[in-house]
């Protein structure tokens, strides 16, 4: 399942790049992200709580982050499980920083997400809709973070 999302952050490209280095702080902009902290192998551990009405899953797992500063590219590989629901997710998320002008930077996000087990049964369009909402809120929160 592939998603694309794009939003603009009111910060110069270099400033946004610098802000993105504090991964746990950036992760705090993701709605539902909890307890994101550095792991033992250069990765990050944490969980993501996603709800649709009364239904909810808590995906707990790890993220590894690779950066190419020259290309302005972030690549995150995440894998997570929900113990209770029985199922999990794997995702490769790429974020490209593209300068709009001296004060604004566009963040172009592409994500390739695989859902396993029961999570896969929720229906792709519903998941996609939820993912869009999460990216949108993340963008708004990130904009607030870098402009504060």
């Amino acid at each position: 399942m592939k998603f694309e999302h794009q939003f603009t952050v009111p910060a110069p490209r270099a400033a946004l790049w610098a802000a993105l280095q504090d991964f746990p702080r950036v992760a705090s902009c993701i709605p539902g992200a909890e307890e994101v902290r550095p792991g033992e192998h250069g990765d990050y551990q944490g969980s993501l709580r996603v709800t649709i009405g009364p239904m909810g899953v808590t995906l707990t797992g790890s993220v590894t982050v690779a950066q190419e500063e020259a290309a302005g590219l972030w690549r995150m590989t995440a894998q997570a499980q929900d113990r209770k629901v029985g199922g999990g997710a794997r995702a490769i998320i790429e974020a490209a920083l593209v300068e709009v002008d001296s004060r604004q930077t566009a963040l172009k996000i592409t994500a390739d997400v695989q859902l396993m087990g029961r999570l896969g049964e929720l229906g792709q369009p519903l998941i996609k809709r939820k993912a869009d909402a999460i990216f949108k809120e993340f963008g708004e929160n990130l904009a607030k973070l870098v402009s504060s």
Binding site: P54, M55, G56, V57, K84, V85, L122
Partner: peptide, 9 residues
């Protein structure tokens, strides 16, 4: 049904 599927806790 949602409880059985653990979609609701």
């Amino acid at each position: 049904v949602m409880l059985k599927q653990s979609l609701v806790q």
